[in-house]
């Protein structure tokens, strides 16, 4: 029975995704069970099935081995019962999927966030207007006081930011579990490491409410820091963030000039 092999491969693939990944994940992050989100799992499985079918049918033998039994069930007059059962199974499967899709649920709707939305070209803080295209960290050029500025930025961080973003900048401060979206992890290569300082300045300065709507400003708990901190303090804390994590800010052509 050649048809069993692809079915077996697909089943193994499904188990790996459904159990294997969460299992490995739970070793990395003890106490959690990091499942593959359904939205991703569906796409994974689609391509696992498609890929398996492709590499099982490239040869004539393989093709006959898979199509043959299926065609047999649907055409052989002697297999009426099997045909009936298999049609029922396929039909019920379709009904089940459709039911899952439409049934009412009490889950909060999935809200999609764009984590790094496009910044506005200018932003207004402290009654001043800043052009984010060309804005640079004024303190970065001050090499003489760099260590001092970083240290003062650290003080700002631990007095204000630490509670959510954590002492190791992993986004796991004392309060992190209360938030969704969770506080940003600055050590991660996907956050400040790929952003310019002007972007970070904008994100800190205007906080959650300053996000454009695709980034769900109503969800973020980040305060509007320009109401609470001075411009200089924000630039210092930015210096501190990059210095502590060892990342260097992205520099665009407009800023390099």
């Amino acid at each position: 029975m050649k048809i069993l092999k692809p079915i077996l491969i697909i089943a193994v693939g499904y188990l790996l995704l459904k159990v294997g990944i969460p299992f490995v994940g739970s070793k990395l992050h003890p106490g959690t069970w990091p499942v593959v989100p359904t939205s991703v799992l569906k796409m994974y499985m689609f391509f696992v099935v498609a890929g398996t079918l492709l590499f099982s049918t490239f040869s004539e033998d393989g093709y006959a081995g898979i199509v043959g039994p299926v065609a047999d069930i649907y055409t052989n007059p002697k297999k009426g019962l099997l045909r009936f059962v298999s049609i029922m199974i396929v039909g019920s499967l379709g009904a089940y999927v459709a039911y899952q899709y439409v049934k009412p649920t009490f889950d909060a709707p999935v809200e999609l966030r764009s984590i790094h939305p496009a910044p506005p070209s200018t932003v207004k803080m402290w009654g001043k207007s800043y052009s984010l295209q060309t804005l640079k960290n004024p303190l970065r050029a001050d090499k003489a006081n760099f260590a001092k500025n970083v240290e003062e930025g650290g003080i700002v961080f631990f007095q204000n930011c630490f509670f959510c973003h954590g002492d190791r900048m992993l986004g796991k401060g004392p309060f992190y579990q209360g938030f969704n979206p969770m506080p940003a992890n600055f050590v991660d290569v996907g956050t400040i490491a790929q952003l310019t300082e002007s972007f970070v300045f904008w994100r800190i300065g205007t906080g959650g409410p300053g996000l454009p709507s695709e980034a769900t400003p109503w969800l973020s708990a980040m305060p509007i820091w320009h109401h609470l901190l001075s411009e200089e303090q924000i630039w210092k804390v930015i210096l501190f963030l990059y210095d502590y994590t060892g990342h260097s800010p992205r520099v665009t052509a407009a800023q390099a000039h």
Partner: peptide, 25 residues
């Protein structure tokens, strides 16, 4: 094709315990 931002339901978010998946991330 694994997206950087995973779409997850609130239940999945609780199970994963982080906006970043420890493996898929």
């Amino acid at each position: 094709f694994t997206p950087h931002t995973l779409i997850m339901t609130s239940k999945e978010l609780t199970q994963i315990g982080d906006a970043h998946h420890p493996l898929l991330g």
